[in-house]
Structure formats: C-alpha cells, structure tokens
Simulated scan of single mutants.
Amino acid sequence: MLVLGRKYKFTKIEEDRLQKKRIKLTIIKYTNKEAEEILEEIKIILNTKKYKTIILNTKGKVDDKIIKYLTDIQFEKNINIINIEYFMETYLNKCYIPDDHQDLNYLVNIKPFSKFQYFQKRLIDYIGSITLLLISWPILLLARRKIKKQSPGTSMFKQLRIGLNNKEFKCIKFRSMKLDAEKDGAQFASENDPRVFAWGETMRKTRIDEIPQVLNVLKGDMHFIGPRPERAFWIKQFEKEIPYYNERHIIRPGITGWAQVMYPYGENEEDAKQKLMYDLYYIKYWNILFEIKVVWKTILIVIGKKGI
C-alpha cells in the first residue's frame, strides 16, 4: 500500500501487525515539498511497482494536480483510494484520533449501548463472571497465599476508579506491588517495574490480579468486557493532552477489553491515546461476535502470559 503523508505515524506494534497480514507500507512524505515534486515521486513509484491501495494520510490540502492524477489512475490501474481513518478501522481495528482536535468526525457513532445491547452485555457479565469464579477459585487461593508470602500485608485492595458517566467506584484488585509502591505519589506502571514483586509480575502478565473485579461486575460497577477503569489522577493528566478522553466513560469499564488485548501496559499519555483509539473502536463496532473475540484473545494472553 502507498501512503501519502505522515498525518498519523504508525507504531512499531502496528507495523508488525500489518507485516503479519502481509501488508507493506511505502510512505511518501508530504510536508515541505512542492506539489510537482510529490506528483513526480508518486508517478515513479507507481510505474516501478504495482500498488492496489493508496492511503491519504496528509494534514494539509492535497494539491489539485495530485487529486487529478490519482482520480485518473484510479480506474486505469485499478487502485483503491482510501483515507487514513478508513484504513485504521479496517486494517488496525482502532479509530483514528487527530492531534489538532479540529476534526471531530471520529466521534460519529460513538454512543452508549442501546437497551438491547445493554441487556446482552449484562447477560454476558453474569455468565462470564460466574464461570470465571467457578474455574479460577484454586488460582485465587494460590494467589492470596503467594502474595502474603512474597509481600506480607493485605492481598487485595480497593482503589477509587472512574466508571460510567465519570462516577467513581471502588475497584477491587489483587495487590501486585509492594505496600509502599506509591509513597512518592502516583506513577505509571512500567515494564520491569521495581515496585512489582515476582508473583505480582506473573499476575499482571496473566491478568490474575484483575479477577477479583468480578465482584464489581456482579455489583454493576463494571462490565466483563470494556475499557479499563482509570484513576481520577491520571484522567486529569490525560485530559490536558487528550481533551476527548472521557468519551470512553459513556459505557461501563471492564475487567478486560479490546485495548488490553491489542496494546501493552501504558506508561505515558501517548499510550493512553493509543488505548483510547481501541476503546472507541470497541464502542463503535460492538456486537456479540466482537465480545467473544475479546474473551478469546484474553484467554490466549492468560495461557501464553503475553503482555498484549
């Protein structure tokens, strides 16, 4: 695929994912170039190699000469022309979010679940939570014992998180960090975080630390599947760079979610934005089959102990 511009810069994770799908991207830089120079570069590339798709990924206005050439060759060379928004939703399963906050088209069809969708979600919540409790109770006992052995103190803790409509609730988790993990204030969890003890690291990779949240699900604070609940402290930080971050709160958070199975633990605002793109895609395209897909990917992560 030929990509015109760098409005959106693909991450290493996305490049690897596209490579597995045998999709190779050739990027033509658009900024600080004259239209004639860009047009000539496009012609040379298209005459050298056959491309099936051209992705429009430019911030600025595309010159009329380039538009005319692209429309002329669209049928002549049987090339499909798409924008970056369509490409990301179709091939990367995430919604594009612009950096300039001017184009709000990505918010189209991002809306709360209908009554019927909510009914389906709650049915899945009860079935999933009860099933998880029945099959995981030996792991819960083991987890509690190993936590107390490696890091004496309470094995579970409650932490205020933001849920539906920005309302706080007490989220229940197994403790995976030392008791004094935040003695210097809140901070992002990172890869090989020294605050995480050995069994805590295993729990985080396999999502065992999240299992107690089935109690939140049964209570109605959370869904089995949905955006991960975040703390108010971090949300305030994210909103400084991502003013639309609260869009993810139009539905209840989940124990696991599309962002969690598609992207690793977040360490900064950029990671939060990347996860938001997946969360919005999940909300926009939710259906039963999609829900089952998230559950299946979560199971694969738990079994394989993968970070994503």
Rank of each mutant, 00 (worst) to 15 (best):
L2K: 14
K12E: 09
K12G: 10
E15H: 08
D16Q: 14
N32K: 15
N32P: 13
K33P: 04
K33V: 08
A35K: 10
I38Y: 06
E40A: 10
E41C: 14
K49N: 12
K52G: 13
L56S: 07
K68V: 13
D72Q: 15
F75S: 15
N80R: 15
E85T: 12
M88K: 10
K94W: 06
I110Q: 10
P112F: 00
K115I: 14
Y118S: 13
Y118F: 06
L123R: 12
L123V: 08
Y126G: 00
I130R: 05
P138V: 00
L140Y: 00
K149H: 07
S151W: 02
P152V: 05
P152H: 08
R161G: 09
L164A: 14
F169T: 09
K170T: 01
F174W: 03
M177S: 03
E182C: 12
E182T: 11
K183C: 03
D184G: 03
A186L: 06
F188P: 07
S190V: 05
D193S: 11
R195P: 00
V196Y: 01
A198E: 15
T202L: 11
R204G: 03
R204W: 00
R207I: 05
I211H: 01
Q213Y: 02
L215Q: 01
I225C: 07
R231M: 12
F238L: 01
Y245K: 15
R252I: 00
P253A: 08
I255P: 05
G257I: 05
W258A: 09
Y263M: 08
G266A: 07
K273C: 06
K273S: 06
Q274T: 10
L280A: 01
Y282S: 10
K284P: 14
N287Y: 03
I288G: 13
V294G: 00
V295P: 04
W296I: 10
K305P: 11
I308V: 15
